[in-house]
Computed example of a mutant assay.
Amino acid sequence: MTSIKKNLPDEQATIELGYELSLWVSAPLVIYLTGDLGAGKTTLSRGLIQSLGHKGNVKSPTYTLVEPYELKGMDIFHFDLYRLLDPEELEFMGIRDYFTEKSLSLIEWPDRGHGLLPDADISIHLGYQGEQRQVELNGLTPAGQQVVAKLK
Score class of each variant (00 low, 15 high):
Val58Ser: 06
Lys59Thr: 13
Lys59Asp: 01
Thr62Met: 10
Thr62Glu: 07
Tyr63Pro: 06
Tyr63Asn: 07
Leu65Ile: 15
Val66Ala: 10
Val66Asp: 10
Val66Thr: 05
Pro68Lys: 13
Pro68Ala: 14
Pro68Met: 09
Pro68Glu: 15
Tyr69Asp: 08
Tyr69Ser: 12
Glu70Pro: 00
Lys72Ile: 01
Ile76Cys: 02
Ile76Ala: 02
Phe77Glu: 05
Asp80Arg: 12
Asp80Phe: 10
Leu85Tyr: 05
Glu88Ser: 10
Glu88Lys: 13
Glu89Phe: 06
Glu89Tyr: 01
Phe92Ser: 12
Phe92Lys: 09
Gly94Asp: 13
Ile95Ala: 09
Asp97Arg: 14
Phe99Met: 02
Phe99Lys: 04
Thr100Tyr: 13
Glu101Asn: 15
Glu101His: 15
Lys102Tyr: 14
Leu106Ile: 15
Ile107Tyr: 08
Ile107Thr: 09
Trp109Asp: 05
Arg112Pro: 12
His114Asn: 12
Leu116Glu: 01
Leu117Lys: 05
Leu117Pro: 06
Leu117Val: 03
Pro118Gly: 05
Pro118Trp: 08
Asp119Gly: 08
Asp119Leu: 07
Asp121Phe: 01
Ile122Asn: 08
Ser123Tyr: 00
Ile124Phe: 08
His125Arg: 13
Gly127Ala: 12
Tyr128Leu: 13
Tyr128Cys: 03
Gly130Ser: 02
Gln134His: 00
Val135Thr: 03
Val135Met: 04
Val135Asp: 00
Val135Gln: 10
Leu137Ile: 06
Leu137Pro: 09
Gly139Asn: 03
